[in-house]
Simulated assay, not measured.
Amino acid sequence: MMNKLKEKKILIIIASFLIFLSCDSNNQTLSSDNVKLLDIESISETRSSLGNTYDEESNVFWIMGKGIVEQKQEIIEINISIEQRDKDVINASKVVNENINKVVEIAKSLGIKEDDIVTKEFSISPVERWIQKKDEYGEWGESEIIAYEVNNSILLSSEKIDVITEFINQSTIQTGNTLRINNINFSAKDQKENKIESREKAIEDALYKASFYEKRLEIKLGDIIHFQELSGPSVSQNDKSMPMMRMAAEAMPSASIYAGDSEIITEIYLGFKID
């Protein structure tokens, strides 16, 4: 009787051990399947991040096209201002008006047209200082106007660098420390035409790639059913946007300006139906 009980216990232990091994094997198989699923998802995400991809669900083959057009920055824009600070606002305004008229006359004498001279900003602002005061009641502080600052800003444009250079030189001599050069910017003359050309190049690039992949991958591309354009900003290869400078007439060297080139970039995405 005792021997039979021992045999049953041994059989139960062996059966429990086999069940444990079976469960562990199933878990390992499931874990392996999960790893495979993750690998497939990872591959799918990587593929979708590429420029030219095939979307199995919608049966669409995506092609990216890129067009780049180099352009000369032929138009120079200079933003200058006359600034004067004085305790008397009338005196400050008088100095600013006299010097801004000098600047405009210099521009006209150099061949800059009136249509290319535009007032950008005119302002009169109080200059304040925080002053500590004291009396029999204690100490306190208050803001007090100590002067007035008058500023008149104009924008001029020309296609000739030497004209802008000479304008800066003469204006510095005539207006002295009141002259401020806020910034100098360069732009292309035919931006619209260059943009159209960059789009045409992007389309040609996309269609060439579509033909290439169609032959090499032995697939048949049908109609274009999706389109998207991504237009990037003009990229300057010679960034000469200058910050604000306070000019001094004494020992002022001649200005040097360089325009450089820029690029207009267009990117498009075409979605072809797979026949």
Rank of each mutant, 00 (worst) to 15 (best):
K4D: 12
L5R: 11
E7R: 13
E7A: 15
K9L: 12
C23Y: 00
D24H: 00
N27A: 13
Q28E: 12
Q28D: 05
L38K: 13
E41I: 12
S42T: 15
S42Y: 12
T46P: 07
T46M: 10
R47V: 10
R47Q: 14
S48K: 14
S49T: 13
N52K: 05
D55A: 03
D55T: 07
E56M: 06
E57H: 14
S58C: 06
I63N: 01
I63E: 00
I63Y: 02
K66C: 02
E70M: 03
Q71C: 07
Q71H: 11
Q73E: 14
I76V: 08
E77N: 12
I78P: 01
I78E: 00
R85H: 02
D86W: 00
V89S: 14
I90E: 11
A92W: 00
V95A: 15
N101E: 10
N101M: 09
K102G: 02
V103D: 03
V103A: 13
V104N: 12
E105I: 06
E105W: 11
L110A: 05
E114P: 08
D116R: 10
D116I: 03
T119C: 12
S123P: 07
R129V: 00
W130K: 08
K134D: 10
E136C: 07
Y137N: 12
G138P: 06
E139I: 10
G141C: 09
E142N: 01
E142R: 00
S143C: 04
S143R: 11
S143T: 03
E144R: 00
I154E: 02
I161L: 07
I164P: 00
T165N: 10
Q170C: 03
T172I: 08
I173Q: 12
N182R: 12
N182A: 13
N183G: 08
I184L: 09
N185F: 05
S187Y: 06
A188F: 01
A188H: 05
K192T: 15
N194H: 05
I196S: 07
K201S: 05
K201M: 14
A202P: 04
D205L: 07
D205A: 13
L217S: 15
L217N: 09
G222V: 08
D223F: 05
F227C: 03
E229Y: 14
S234R: 03
S234M: 08
V235N: 08
V235F: 14
K240R: 09
S241V: 10
M242N: 02
M245H: 09
M247P: 02
M247D: 06
A251W: 02
S254N: 10
S254M: 04
I257K: 01
S262F: 01
S262G: 11
S262Q: 06
I264R: 03
F272Y: 11
D275R: 15
